[in-house]
Design a protein around this nucleic acid. Structure first.
Lengths: 118, 118
DNA sequence: GACATTACTTACATTTTTTATAGTACGTTA
DNA sequence: TAACGTACTATAAAAAATGTAAGTAATGTC
C-alpha cells in the first residue's frame, strides 16, 4: 500500500481505466489481498480491530490498518473510536459498503464453482 | 506477474485465504490491473490480440500477454491460434468465464453508484 | 513501579506487479 | 531482397503491495 505515486504511468493508467470502466474503478476499491474478506466479515456486523485480526489468518496489524484506512477513505467502512483505555475501535460497513453483499456472495458462489472445475 | 515465489509468506497467505474464502479465491483470479476489463470486452465476443490491445488504453503487449496467459491458465478464456502468416490468435470466454458477466455488470453498477457518492 | 491491554505507528526489507524497450519468426508483398 | 504485419519473448527497471519487527500512549491492576 503506502502512497501511490501520482507521476507514475501506473497511476495514469489506473485513472484512465477507472474513468471509462466502472468495473475497473470498483476493482481498484475492493482490490488488494484483504479488502473483500474484511468486508465479508463485516457483513455480519460491527467488529473491533482485534476481532477482525483474529478472523483473518496471518494478517499483520500493519496490513489490517492499511486496508481499513483505505476502506474508510473510500467510505466502505465506518470507524468509530471509543476514547477508553485500553482503546476500543469498531468498524462497520456503510450503506454503500453493505451494497457489496450481493456481489461478494456471487463471487463466492462463482469461486466455489470455479474451484470445482480446476 | 511473473512467477510467484512459493516460499514467501505472501504466497502462503494467499493460499490460506483462498482455501477458506471462495471470494478471496475468486479475487485472486480476476484481480490485477486488467483482467476484469479484458473479460468485460470479451463478453461481447471473440477478439484478436491486436483488437484487445486497441481497446485497452495504454496496455503494453507484455501485460496483455501476461494477463491473457493467466486467464487462459485459469480457464477463463480460450485461446485459438490460426497458423497463418501473419499469425492470428483469437480469445474468447469459456463457459465459466462467461459466468462472470452478471458479476461484472453488478460491479459496474456498484462502481457507478460509488463514483457518484464520492 | 513493573506490567498488561489495545489499536495503532514507524522504519525497513522483501515480494509481486507493472512498465519500458528492444527484438523474434515467418510467409507475403513490393 | 527488403520491408510489413502479427503476436508474441527477453531483459531490465520502476513502482506498488505486502511482510517483519519494534515501539508508542494511556491507564488500570498487581
Amino acid at each position: 500500500m503506502s502512497k501511490i505515486k501520482e507521476t507514475s504511468t501506473n497511476f495514469a493508467n489506473k485513472q484512465a481505466l477507472a474513468d471509462e470502466c466502472s468495473e475497473a474503478y470498483a476493482a481498484n476499491i475492493i482490490g488488494g489481498q484483504w479488502a473483500l474478506v474484511i468486508c465479508s466479515w463485516l457483513i455480519g456486523g460491527k467488529l473491533r480491530f482485534g476481532e477482525l485480526k483474529k478472523k483473518l489468518p496471518n494478517i499483520t496489524e500493519r496490513m489490517l490498518t492499511l486496508q481499513l484506512r483505505k476502506l474508510e477513505e473510500n467510505k466502505i467502512v465506518k470507524r468509530t473510536v471509543y476514547t477508553e483505555v485500553p482503546p476500543r475501535v469498531e468498524y462497520e460497513l456503510t450503506p454503500i459498503g453493505y451494497e457489496l453483499k450481493p456481489i461478494i456472495k456471487h463471487l463466492e458462489k462463482w469461486g466455489q464453482k470455479h474451484k470445482d472445475l480446476m
